[in-house]
């Protein structure tokens, strides 16, 4: 497993842990009501789980195990994958900083951070598409041993 796949999968595991802790807090709060603002973290919880964990795990595993492009160039330029990795995790971090305060009371700084988050999520999405797309392929006839 190459470095990029390992980093993505380990980061995904950390995001799973973070989302579980946040989810547990939100669930406990629904009964114990120790903070009326914790519910504002619900969208952050969903995105940590579905983007930080599920999507990042899928991307890491796909970049590891999907068919290579060729022996000489097994993967797309890895810089694209790193940009997507940075944008995905940076976007989630910015979201966690900006979205709950913005939901409590919109402010200029939180609006600009949400703009940055939105941009980073778009960059992450299309970056991963560009990194994975050429790896979604049938084996060439010379390398196939039947069934491709």
């Amino acid at each position: 497993m190459h470095t990029q796949a390992r980093v993505m999968i380990k980061t995904a595991l950390m995001q799973l842990l973070a989302s579980m802790l946040l989810g547990a807090l939100i669930l406990a709060n629904s009964e114990l009501q120790f903070s009326h603002r914790l519910i504002l973290w619900l969208p952050v919880y969903y995105h940590l789980l579905m983007v930080g964990w599920v999507t990042q795990l899928i991307a890491g595993v796909a970049l590891w195990m999907f068919p290579v492009i060729s022996r000489e160039q097994p993967r797309v330029d890895e810089r694209i994958g790193w940009v997507a990795y940075g944008a995905l995790n940076g976007g989630l971090l910015l979201r966690a900083i900006a979205e709950p305060p913005h939901a409590a009371g919109p402010q200029r700084w939180s609006a600009w951070l949400l703009l940055g988050t939105g941009g980073l999520e778009v960059v992450a999405g299309w970056g991963l598409v560009i990194a994975i797309w050429p790896r979604v392929r049938q084996r060439t006839a010379a390398r196939s041993s039947g069934g491709a």
């Binding site: 900006a98 913005h102 609006a111 951070l113 988050t117 939105g118 778009v122 999405g125």
Partner: peptide, 16 residues
């Protein structure tokens, strides 16, 4: 995924 992420990004910007 690309289209869904783009819509999500636009939703966040609209939220701001």
């Amino acid at each position: 995924f690309g289209i869904g992420a783009t819509i999500g990004g636009l939703l966040l910007i609209e939220k701001g």
